[in-house]
Computed example of a mutant assay.
Amino acid sequence: MTVFRDFNFKLLVIEKLMYWDRTLGPEFSLRDHMRAHGVEDLEAHVERNELEYTVLAEARAYFEELEIPAELLATVDELTFDGGHSVYMECAPVWDGEDDLFDIRSLDDLDLLPNLKVFTGGLALAHMLPDAPGILAARGIEARH
C-alpha cells in the first residue's frame, strides 16, 4: 500500500491521474456522493454547516483511502500546482483560493514519483516551503512558474 505523507501532495497526483490522464478511477464526484446520501444542494449544505474553508469529511475520507498503484505513480512525469484543479472543487466545492487550504507542506512524497521531471507551479512552492526549489533541483526536477 502506497502511503502519502502530505494529503495535499496526494491531491496533486490524483488531479493528474484521475482528472487529466483519466487513468485512475472511477472519477470522484462529491456532488454525486452527497446526493446519494440525501444532500441535494451541495452549496447550501456547505454554507449551512459553515464548511466553506474546509475539505469536506466525505471527500477527505475518499481521497485518503484511495489506493494509487505504484505502476500508475510511475507514469507521473509532470505535476501542476494550480488553484483551479478539479480535485480541489471536489474537496471544497465553494473554495475561493484565498487561503492555504491546499498548500503543500512537505515534498517527502516525491519519492513515490520516480519519473517526475517537471513541476509546473514548482517555483510558487517557495512561499509554502522555502527550500522547495532546491529540493526539486537536487532531484533533477524542472520547476516552472
Score class of each variant (00 low, 15 high):
4 F>W: 11
6 D>I: 09
12 L>F: 05
15 E>M: 11
16 K>R: 15
19 Y>K: 06
20 W>A: 11
22 R>V: 07
26 P>S: 09
26 P>C: 08
29 S>N: 05
30 L>V: 00
31 R>V: 08
32 D>I: 08
37 H>M: 08
39 V>W: 11
39 V>D: 05
40 E>I: 03
41 D>I: 08
44 A>T: 02
45 H>G: 00
50 E>R: 15
50 E>I: 09
53 Y>S: 07
56 L>I: 08
59 A>M: 06
61 A>S: 14
63 F>E: 06
64 E>C: 07
66 L>T: 06
68 I>M: 02
70 A>T: 07
75 T>K: 15
77 D>T: 14
79 L>S: 01
83 G>S: 08
86 S>M: 12
88 Y>N: 00
91 C>V: 00
93 P>Q: 03
96 D>F: 03
97 G>H: 12
100 D>L: 10
101 L>Q: 14
107 L>E: 06
108 D>E: 13
110 L>R: 02
112 L>Y: 01
112 L>D: 08
113 L>R: 02
118 V>L: 11
118 V>A: 06
121 G>F: 09
122 G>V: 00
123 L>C: 03
123 L>V: 02
124 A>G: 02
126 A>K: 15
127 H>M: 12
136 L>P: 01
137 A>R: 13
139 R>T: 02
142 E>K: 15
143 A>K: 11
